[in-house]
C-alpha cells in the first residue's frame, strides 16, 4: 500500500482527486477509521433500515462544523472536538449515537504529522463512544484560505420509543442541573492562544456525554430537557431553555461549580464563567422531587463528578434568565454581545 513517506505537508494535489488524494484517504483516514462500510469506498454509506428501526422509532440527525484556534490544546484537539461535539448533540436528545460523517477542509501547508494526530484523536473518540465514521470528504484549499483545518461532522442516532426530551416540557418548580464545572474549555482555549500570557493546569473538558446521559435516563423518567453547553457557555443554554419553554429561569450564584483556575482567569480578565464555552458538560431540567437523587446518581459517573443543582424554572416572564447574587439580590443574567473581551475597569 502506498504511504505518505515523501509528504511532510499537505499540498493542493492531496485534494485534487488524483493519486495523491487517494493515498491520503487510504493511508490516513481509512487506516484510522477503518470499518466495513468505510472500506467499501462507495460514494455513499448504506445502512440497514431494519437494524435502525429495531433500536427506536425516530432517527436523530445533527451536523456541526469545527473551527478553532489553536488546533491542538491541553485536553484535546479539533478532531476530538469534532467527534464528541456532534455525538453530544445526539446524546442529549436521548439518541444512541451510531454513525458519523466527516468532511475535512485542509489548508495547503498543514503538517501531515499534525493531521495524523488529529485523525488519531478522532479515531479514539469514536472508538470510546462506540460509533463508526462511515463516510467523508476531503478538500484542500490554497495557503491563506483556510486557518489550518476545518472539520464538519454530521451524526446519526436512534431515539428509543417514548423518549421525549424537549424544552417545552419545562414546568415552574423544575430544577436546573449541570453535570460539572463551568467554562473549562473556554478558559483553557483562552490560555492556549497565548495572547494574554496566562498559565495553569487547566485543560479542556472535551468528552463524550453519551454514557452519562444513558446513566441519567436510567435513573429517572422525569428529565424534561437536556442540552450540551458549548459556545456561549451555560448562560446560552439557559436562554435557549427559557425562550423555548416560554418560562423564566433563576440560577443561584452560590451554587455554581467553577474550578479555581477558571475562576482565576475570570477574575483577572473581568469575565464570567457562565459565558465561557464548555465541550463536555450538559444542562438538564428535571422535576423538583427527582433532582437530588439524579445529582447523586450523576456524581457516580466519571462525566458527572461535579454535578449539582444550579437553578429553577419560574412561571415567567417568558425568556428571562436571572441570577440570585451572593448578596441575595436578583439581577439579569444576560448574553454577551459578541466576543468576550477582557476589561481593564
Amino acid at each position: 500500500m502506498p504511504t505518505l513517506l515523501d509528504d511532510s505537508h499537505i499540498t493542493l494535489s492531496h485534494g485534487a482527486g488524483g493519486r495523491a488524494m487517494r493515498t491520503l484517504i487510504e493511508t490516513l483516514f481509512i487506516e484510522a477509521f477503518g470499518n466495513d462500510e468505510l472500506c467499501r469506498t462507495e460514494d455513499q454509506a448504506r445502512l440497514d433500515l431494519a437494524r435502525l428501526s429495531a433500536q427506536g422509532d425516530r432517527l436523530a440527525f445533527t451536523t456541526d462544523s469545527y473551527v478553532i484556534d489553536p488546533l491542538e490544546f491541553p485536553g484535546g484537539n479539533i478532531g476530538s472536538l469534532a467527534v464528541n461535539g456532534t455525538l453530544n448533540d445526539l446524546a442529549v436528545g436521548g439518541a444512541r449515537p451510531l454513525y458519523l460523517s466527516c468532511a475535512f477542509i485542509i489548508e495547503e501547508g498543514m503538517a501531515v504529522s499534525q493531521l495524523r494526530r488529529i485523525v488519531e484523536a478522532m479515531r479514539e473518540a469514536a472508538r470510546a463512544a462506540g460509533v463508526s465514521i462511515i463516510t467523508g470528504d476531503t478538500k484542500v484549499v490554497p495557503r491563506g484560505k483556510g486557518d489550518g483545518l476545518f472539520i464538519n461532522t454530521s451524526g446519526l442516532g436512534v431515539v428509543p420509543q417514548g423518549l421525549e426530551l424537549a424544552a417545552s416540557r419545562c414546568e415552574p418548580g423544575d430544577r436546573v442541573v449541570v453535570s460539572g464545572t463551568l467554562g473549562d474549555h473556554g478558559a483553557a482555549i483562552l490560555q492556549a492562544r497565548g495572547e494574554l500570557a496566562l498559565a495553569s493546569n487547566l485543560t479542556s473538558d472535551c468528552r463524550s456525554l453519551h454514557g452519562l446521559v444513558q446513566h441519567m435516563l436510567a435513573q429517572t423518567t422525569e428529565i424534561k430537557a437536556m442540552r450540551d453547553a458549548t459556545r456561549g457557555g451555560v448562560a446560552a443554554i439557559l436562554h435557549e431553555f427559557a425562550a423555548a419553554s416560554g418560562r423564566a429561569i433563576r440560577v443561584f450564584e452560590d451554587s455554581l461549580p467553577v474550578k479555581p483556575e477558571v475562576r482565576g482567569v475570570c477574575e483577572i480578565l473581568g469575565l464570567d464563567a457562565l459565558h465561557f464555552a464548555n465541550e463536555g458538560k450538559l444542562v438538564a431540567v428535571v422535576a423538583q422531587e427527582r433532582a437530588d437523587a439524579l445529582v447523586r446518581a450523576m456524581r457516580q459517573h466519571e462525566a458527572g463528578r461535579d454535578a449539582c443543582i444550579i437553578g429553577e424554572i419560574l412561571e415567567g416572564p417568558a425568556g428571562r434568565v436571572q441570577i440570585r447574587t451572593l448578596m441575595g439580590s436578583e439581577r439579569l443574567l444576560d448574553l454577551p454581545e459578541g466576543e468576550l473581551l477582557p476589561r481593564i475597569c
Binding site: 498559565a199 493546569n201 483556575e261 483577572i268
Partner: peptide
C-alpha cells in the same frame, strides 16, 4: 499566582 493561574 491567582487562584492557580500564573502570570508574569
Amino acid at each position: 499566582e491567582i487562584s492557580g493561574v500564573r502570570r508574569s
